[in-house]
Nucleic acid binder design. Structure first.
Lengths: 230, 230, 230, 230
DNA sequence: CATGAATGAGTATTCATTCAT
DNA sequence: TATGAATGAATACTCATTCAT
């Protein structure tokens, strides 16, 4: 009786495919690629130098990523996944306000630790102008939505102004995005802590004094209703 | 009568260089170049197409700008000058707070009217990574400093919290910068007015309720001095 | 009044386009390209070597032919035009039978003088398999049709068998085509005259003896009509 | 009983090489390779796709054929062997003239059934220009020589003109070769029978009428001898 | 002054072949 | 023995810049 006939899973002749290897190798390649693309720019980075840096042949890179474009976008995507994961794991505090603060600090911290990732985001936008949405914004929406529950809780407990969640997310998202880019572009080297403090100071408390604030809030109420609230 | 005749010392015989003409021509070229660079990206825009669009020979472009790089940077610089001028002329209100508001609205309005200029800023960063400071930030510092006097006045009249001027400028600058890019990248099409309202709402008044705010300000005072202020 | 306003043909500023130059240059390039493509094969001929041979830059070639493919097909087309013209000018005899003979000799003579052109035809077929019809056959149909009038005359004067014109053209065309390729592929170096003689001998007179021929023709008549012709 | 057992001296212990298997496998590979090379061209056919089509690894192909070139030439050679065998087995008639006719029909029939083989012949010529003689012509000479005996018999029995055997073979060979290529290149779809009929009609009987033929033959005799034959 | 012809450095990708498993 | 992972030589085309006219 043929040994293969019964119950034997079709044993491959020859060298078996190693799925593990593929994943491990891909990650190695993306790490190096991200670093080089950030350091030299997309256009100025030949796939050859990525291969050289890894000590492999150019063809090997192309076995894992069909085009230079895919290689680059893979690197950006990997970065966004890391950023997302990093923020998620940092939000450990029991208090929702503290959690928001932790998220902001984590965001800035990630880019402080991985400044080259900002470069990658820029390069993506500049080179792949055809994409409907840059990778960053693919993730951003999902990430921001996580803050709705926190806001809800804060509003319910009377600690947070009752503004539309989306408005707050939009303004905060834009502020962080702008801060991150500005940090990177200008080589701004302020302490992470200070920077987060500044942002929280302005955004949470506002820029106006008590008096001016009261006046402004009253004016807003006046615009919103005929009869002022009691 | 020749426009150049008055007040211009006659320097040499022969056909005088028509400085006016050169400037006018340069501006025409920059306008077209800015549009094309924004629409197609720096790398994908041949000098030839700029020439074609203008209906002149390629060599003519090179008579006005020695390299493609200079042409591009000239276009970016021109855009920043326009932005600056636009903001400056828009700040007409007598009240300093209103002036700040006008500046914010003007900034957003400029990019709403010239969305391609955002693209130019991105392209510059991606392609000319060697420059110590992107053009935008060359102008930004000068522009932001104009707000110090306004803040000073507001603080003096007790309408503005006494925060370091630079802190406020930094946060506001980053927020606007992030907002502008996000608008452009995501094709966000919110009404300009709404968007400015949102930003002002958050930044001027803050996100916290009166109670939370009071507590937070007290805590800050506590950290700052042994004896709480009266 | 502006000098350009009336009656003055818009004089171009700058270097004028030279139409003549373009045609002359194209022909020069095609000549060299044809020779090199034939000598080394399409795939093994870099556009660079064509440029080198001409003593110009590679970019210059690309100014005249947008792709290597167009360059090659241009060379093939040029060869077919020459072949056609050569045959046409060689058919000078008053007698139609002699004209046919002249055409056959001219065809063979052309490929004897330009053996590399056979190679070009092969290369075209091998590389551009997508083309609906190779260049050779584009011209062949037109060329063969010229022989119909000659046949007609010969038939009318009782010197030519009354066969369908197309049949004769087809067989003759295939025979010459096969002869030309075989000559080239095998390096056959028979005298042109002998070869033409052989072909004419076989095709005009046939291979059978009088007796066998008579029998065969009778048999054919028998198949064609119930009543044999008188 | 083992097929190898009789008459084969036992050369060595251990598992004997199964020559049969190797031959069978080689043929399978050549069949697939021939099909793919014809369909896509030599350059456009990766060894990988041959392996894929066979459901084996790329390395396996290389165990049977040391290079892609050998693989291709093997496929061409196999085709020529088949063509030769096909023609040989088709020549069954007792009459030599009929045998010649059968051979012609068989030749055309083979290429009608295996049109892709014409492509293979072209590809060989285009890619392997260094070979002294294409495979086709290696076989052609041997094949044509078989017709000498037939011609001899026909001449002896007064049915065939007394022309040099080689001349006839050459012309007929070229005609068939040209017909085959033209059929393939132009996608000519005439009935096989008709086409053979046309060829035989022209070549056996000739194109001239009795009168013209007589005159031409007389002239030829005049050129050949001082005294005309009686 | 204006032009456009000429140039050639620069680059992503393919695929035959090898050989460790 | 069969496999497929790894390799790197090979190659068409673009476009910024120059400069003769």
């Amino acid at each position: 009786m043929d040994a293969n006939a019964v119950g034997t899973p079709a044993r491959h002749r020859g060298r078996p495919k190693d799925e593990q290897l593929v994943a491990r190798r891909s990650d190695e390649i993306l790490d190096v690629a991200a670093r080089l693309f950030a350091a030299r720019g997309y256009r100025n980075t030949d796939v050859q130098v990525v291969a050289d840096e890894l000590g492999v042949g150019k063809g090997t890179i192309y076995r894992y990523f069909p085009t230079k474009r895919e290689l680059f976008l893979g690197a950006v995507d990997r970065g966004m996944q890391r950023l997302t994961a990093y923020i998620d794991t940092s939000m450990t505090a029991p208090d929702p306000l503290d959690q928001i603060e932790q998220a902001i600090r984590a965001y800035l911290s990630f880019f402080e630790t991985n400044p080259e990732f900002a470069e990658l985001l820029i390069q993506e936008r500049a080179e792949f102008r055809d994409r409907p949405k840059p990778t960053y914004f693919e993730y951003r929406d999902a990430n921001l939505r996580k803050f709705e529950a926190l806001q809800q809780g804060l509003v319910a407990s009377g600690r947070w102004r009752n503004l539309p969640y989306e408005t707050v997310e939009r303004v905060m998202g834009d502020l962080l995005y702008g801060t991150m880019f500005t940090n990177y572009f200008t080589g701004r080297r302020r302490s992470l802590e200070e920077q987060a403090d500044e942002i929280l100071e302005v955004v949470l408390v506002g820029l106006l004094t008590d008096a001016e604030r009261a006046q402004r809030l009253n004016a807003a109420r006046g615009r919103a209703t005929t009869q002022p609230e009691t």
